[in-house]
Design a protein around this nucleic acid. Structure first.
Lengths: 118, 118
DNA sequence: GGGGTAGTACTACGTCCTGTAGAGAGGTGA
DNA sequence: TCACCTCTCTACAGGACGTAGTACTACCCC
């Protein structure tokens, strides 16, 4: 899958935060701090949809972009991808379990328990 | 931390697989398939140690390289880093727990249980 | 002791990704 | 018709990586 760049992630964050599909102009307006040219935003949106992170639909002449997957799914996939890099998945998983904070361990336990019950 | 390139990862894999610190020449000999110039291997080893993935000690004129951290630790850190990208860690963790395979869920459960007992 | 060998440091170059944006085309409303 | 919006195409700079040459030093064998 591959990670995203700084601006790409900023834009994905904006789109994940919104519920509705946005146009390039709308996304641009939501990037406060940076003064980007409209074409910059359009280029990045285009690249993101080309890479499969966004889907887009026509709205008049403009495109409306929305995330192809939820942020959670993306993060989970990144984590699985990291896990795939090792030969010894069990060891890495054990290590990971030890590395998360206590409250997060609790979350994991709960999710695993629910999983088991189904 | 940042991910590694293809050749960088190949070399890290070799060093993770060995127990002893290796010289550039030895690493080069262990990369079977590719016919790399010795300096290529040296350059990559140098970059990896500069990035903190390897530590090196003198052995005569040569350097001996060894991983600065275990592969498991590296993988776990990558996973945590992915997790840091989200605003909602709990949701991502839950999603992750649902995404791992059954046997891996078992491993996670066991690790978390042992963690709890300590 | 001179040449091959091994090792180092430094430098370089092509490629790909990403951030950034301009140019030009084609609608659209005042 | 003119200003304007949005699109697509093209471009360029900087950084990471794969790859390797060059130049210099130290060592070993004949």
């Amino acid at each position: 899958m591959k990670g995203l760049g700084e601006l790409e992630r900023t834009i994905m964050d904006i789109l994940w935060a919104e519920n509705a599909p946005l146009t390039a102009r709308e996304v641009g307006r939501l990037i406060e701090d940076r003064d980007l040219a409209p074409t910059t935003v359009m280029t990045v949106l285009d690249r993101l949809s080309r890479k499969g992170f966004l889907s887009r639909t026509r709205d008049g002449r403009a495109w409306r972009y929305q995330p192809a997957a939820s942020r959670d799914a993306y993060i989970a996939e990144l984590m699985l991808e990291a896990l795939d890099l090792t030969g010894d998945r069990d060891a890495a998983l054990t290590r990971f379990a030890q590395a998360v904070s206590g409250s997060e361990a609790e979350i994991l336990r709960k999710a695993l328990t629910e999983l088991e019950e189904q």
